[in-house]
């Protein structure tokens, strides 16, 4: 400890201590903040700048200022609105499904037995398989010509289903593959959360003669609210950016049935070389995502406080 030198008046030394303390506190926040500012500030500024310009492809620098033109073009494009709609449908189907499945499976997987550890670790694999390979393997299994899926559901008298060629089923396919891939993430957090539930509360409830539904609705669920909220936000931020699965499994088709917004932005930028339009869409999506995330953060805080 460096002790203040006796010559200094006490007040000044206290100020020094306070300042160093403040600096120390900021020291925790600043590495992350500095790293993110250094890596993100210019790219975000560039994207916003490009979205108001005509991009000069020979330098990739913003050319002539065109005001809101790129935004108007984007808003006039029915493909953009379609992509937003498709993304909305996908999120509305996939997120609740993954949350419910994730927590349900966590309950099953948490049963204590010898193989529990292995089961939990193996459950990670779907997350690790590269999206291109995952999409391709699912295509192999779902193809009506040589796939297993129709052979299996045929055994119980269903199908055949054109999983990838029918617009509604293609959306279902995307939701299924995405759920297969990301439910393990929810499960892992949920397993941990369920493990951490205080056992004494349940014993007390059992003595009071509570049935499992009462226990679930009045004890388990309220205790899980913060975790559910946090998992939901992390998954939401990941899902809203999904495009690799759609690219690999259906390439956005048939028609535009699975062309989620990030896939459309990718196509506009990297295929059609319409970087300015893609930037305008990215800004719109950024603002929309930020607004919804803020709503979710606020909502989760309110839920946390209520319980």
């Amino acid at each position: 400890m460096a002790s203040p030198t006796p010559r200094h008046p006490k007040a000044r030394s206290r100020r020094v201590v306070r300042l160093t303390d403040l600096a120390g506190r900021w020291g925790f926040m600043s590495p992350a903040a500095v790293l993110l500012v250094a890596t993100l500030a210019y790219p975000i500024f560039y994207t916003i700048r490009i979205s108001f310009s005509e991009l000069d492809l020979s330098t990739f620098s913003p050319g002539e200022w065109v005001g809101w033109d790129n935004y108007i073009d984007v808003l006039r494009d029915d493909r953009f609105w379609n992509a937003l709609r498709v993304t909305g449908v996908y999120l509305a189907l996939a997120l609740p499904l993954q949350m419910v499945l994730g927590f349900g499976i966590a309950f099953l997987v948490n049963a204590e037995w010898r193989g529990r550890g292995a089961v939990r670790a193996l459950f990670l694999i779907p997350m690790v398989v590269a999206p291109i390979v995952a999409g391709g393997v699912w295509r192999m299994m779902l193809d009506p010509l040589w796939g297993l899926a129709n052979a299996l559901i045929g055994l119980v008298g269903l199908g055949p289903i054109d999983w990838l060629g029918d617009p509604a089923w293609a959306m279902a396919t995307i939701v299924i593959v995405d759920t297969w891939r990301w439910t393990p993430f929810v499960t892992l957090i949920a397993t941990a959360a369920l493990l951490a539930l205080p056992g004494d509360v349940f014993e007390a409830a059992e003595i009071d003669g509570a049935n499992w539904w009462t226990k679930f609705w009045f004890i388990t669920l309220p205790l899980l609210v913060p975790v559910i909220a946090a998992t939901f936000i992390v998954r939401w931020l990941g899902a809203v950016k999904m495009f690799d699965i759609a690219l690999a499994a259906t390439n956005g088709g048939p028609g535009r049935a699975t062309n989620v917004i990030n896939l459309f932005i990718y196509e506009e930028a990297f295929r059609s070389l319409n970087f300015a339009g893609a930037a305008a869409m990215a800004v719109i999506v950024l603002v929309g995502t930020m607004l919804l995330t803020a709503v979710f953060l606020r909502g989760s805080r309110m839920l946390e406080e209520r319980h």
């Binding site: 990739f60 950016k241 970087f275 893609a278 930020m290």
Partner: peptide, 14 residues
């Protein structure tokens, strides 16, 4: 947290 909303495609080129 909100900065995670940026589409990754928009970041790659800059």
């Amino acid at each position: 947290m909100l900065s995670r909303g940026v589409p990754p495609i928009a970041l790659a080129v800059p």
